[in-house]
């Protein structure tokens, strides 16, 4: 399945958002995720089914003004 993750193209075997995070070595309770511009809460990642072409954003805390 082809996905865009944080603006970069990836081809992955993962079918759920949780599997994708593990496959790409994203971990930590400080992460926030969105698929196709909508929040996917941490509790829902394991059951969230990805589709070909999905755009995933994985964000973390950063300095801000």
């Amino acid at each position: 399945m082809k996905l865009m993750v944080n603006g970069e193209a990836h081809e992955v075997a993962a079918t759920t958002l949780a599997e994708l995070l593990a496959a790409l070595d994203y971990e930590g309770d400080w992460l926030a995720t969105a698929v196709n511009s909508d929040l996917v809460q941490k509790a829902n990642r394991a059951e969230f089914q990805l589709s070909d072409g999905d755009r995933i954003e994985i964000l973390s805390p950063m300095q801000g003004g």
Partner: peptide
């Protein structure tokens, strides 16, 4: 604070 893209494997946040 803000939110920005995390780098894979970096645990940047």
């Amino acid at each position: 604070v803000s939110l920005r893209r995390e780098m894979a494997g970096r645990r940047g946040g």
